[in-house]
Write a protein that binds this DNA or RNA. Sequence first.
DNA 1: CTGTTAGCGCATTCAC
DNA 2: GTGAATGCGCTAACAG
Lengths: 342, 342
Amino acid sequence: MATISDIARHANVSKTTVSRVLNGRPDVDRATAERIRQVVAELGYVPSASARALVNGRAKCVGLLIPSLDLAWVLPLVEGVADLVEAREHTLTLHTIARGQESLAAISAQVNARVIDGLIAVVPRGLETWLRGFVERGLPIALIDDQDLVPSVPRIWATDQVGGLDAGRHLVALGRMPAAAITGPLDSIGGRARLDGFRRALAEASMPFDPSLVREGDWTIASGWDGMRALLATHPELRAVFAANDLMAIGAMRAIVDSGRRVPDDIAVVGYDDIPFAAQMIPALTTIRQPLADMARAAAAAVLDALAGQPWEPGPHLFETSLVVRESCGAAATTSRLTERR
Amino acid sequence: MATISDIARHANVSKTTVSRVLNGRPDVDRATAERIRQVVAELGYVPSASARALVNGRAKCVGLLIPSLDLAWVLPLVEGVADLVEAREHTLTLHTIARGQESLAAISAQVNARVIDGLIAVVPRGLETWLRGFVERGLPIALIDDQDLVPSVPRIWATDQVGGLDAGRHLVALGRMPAAAITGPLDSIGGRARLDGFRRALAEASMPFDPSLVREGDWTIASGWDGMRALLATHPELRAVFAANDLMAIGAMRAIVDSGRRVPDDIAVVGYDDIPFAAQMIPALTTIRQPLADMARAAAAAVLDALAGQPWEPGPHLFETSLVVRESCGAAATTSRLTERR
DNA sequence: CTGTTAGCGCATTCAC
DNA sequence: GTGAATGCGCTAACAG
């Protein structure tokens, strides 16, 4: 492997000059610069990332921390982040907390060893302490969908309450009452906001709100299934259900079918997130779309900007949700299905 | 940030000695070692990764190259790799070829800059040249599901033909004839092998093989949908279809439903891969399971072992496929559904 | 415009 | 058992 010294020797200049043209400094003679570039190309020279990292104090690398890849809604996030990080010529490292504390310790080690310059985190509860530690050490961080637990960093968020509202309104407009809700954990901001929105939609329509029509889930398919089964048992007259994420909606759909009912004929379901598979379900899932990839790009941009020395913008960055009407509520625009699949 | 010098000073020893205990060398006095460890803990010292990388020539980092995160079957692969890489105390960088040549160039740059010590690649066609280049530069590589295009590296594979055979046998046993097939690209080894297995199953049962019952897809949902529509148009008497991957199977299911038929009542479908969502489809998809996560771990192990100086085992590593019976063929073990969902 | 000197943080000879 | 010196490949003063 060629080093900067090799280039310097072959081009009859000092390492410094080579370094200058490598970093695009203007104060180099056109001719020498060209000659150096020539040699660089001939020898196929590429500067050592570790040497640069050592001297610059930056590895040009950002980490992405996610709870797990099992959660389908993280995929658009990973894609969005990967996209921007690569475009800005940084490396992306992937970290999950699949192995619990052990994983956290590993990530913490990476941070301390300065292998990553910044972190984009999709925060599960219970990570605040670690994250705060990182912030204190001066690590640029952006949080996606967080719990407001780590203040003074950029937080990327979507309009949860509006989302719940739109979901509820859709069901109301379709006359699918009574409608139940399977919520996210109610000790999470997002979980509460989505439910609040839903309740507001009912209130708008002067529909009574029945607490027994609400089941608290934990974002998993299994909890959606459980919640729906319970709901169906106690409220056989149900006409619709709003699940606070698509995973739970999928679980709910299964429970509905298992009970011998049909979607959407007997029960309408609207989900939340618009994960890639929502459009592939049969019937295709009507859902509240979060612009996950855009949110991810915003998060990545925040830490990348910070690393580039640009103004740091702590606080919430809000993104808009939107209702995606498909088949699971019986109000499908049939043609759209085809479009989505090609 | 504390450096090794700080530790040395605080512990009244030389940097050399600190380095020794840090790297677990035996030739250090018990007491001094203990004292040093003490100081390290107190100051929360963590060695700089870049400094180490520079002097060791290794960054303790391996890259994972995948075509895209949109392909659901890569998820278990990413998980498997992430799992093992983390366990072996390395960093995992993620690379997609979402932006085509540009992406490749970026990855190539990373390799040349020595940010990664090894590479695990899920090889789409068209990458052979790049990959060969990496191999020539001495980069440890493992290939998952490759096309046999890069010889002399470990290649992780599953028993494609057996998979196709099992799928065909299942349909034969169920009496679901005539059965069609939507294949992968027939210029890929895997695509051909799965079809060959399927044909063998028909031959075993002395069923005639009708070429018009075979449609070539490209692994995408859209191609599964297209293929199924064409099949249905020309062969309305169809009773079953074998799709060479789950994505195409999902597309096929949609086409079947769009045509007014039902799965599995009218047409049985069996897929291939067992992606996470296969079990969540309604009806749940019967499929040929590839132990994707295990395969990924094997790939990761191969490059990690190579990096650890252990024997390099080029050539194919074969994994076994297995039939997972769910609902889409009408032969469901009903209880299993619940188990899978919890 | 260019080269000399120094040092980033660590591991590794080689002495002692 | 321990330490002083040297260098990994690169960038950053500081001179000229």
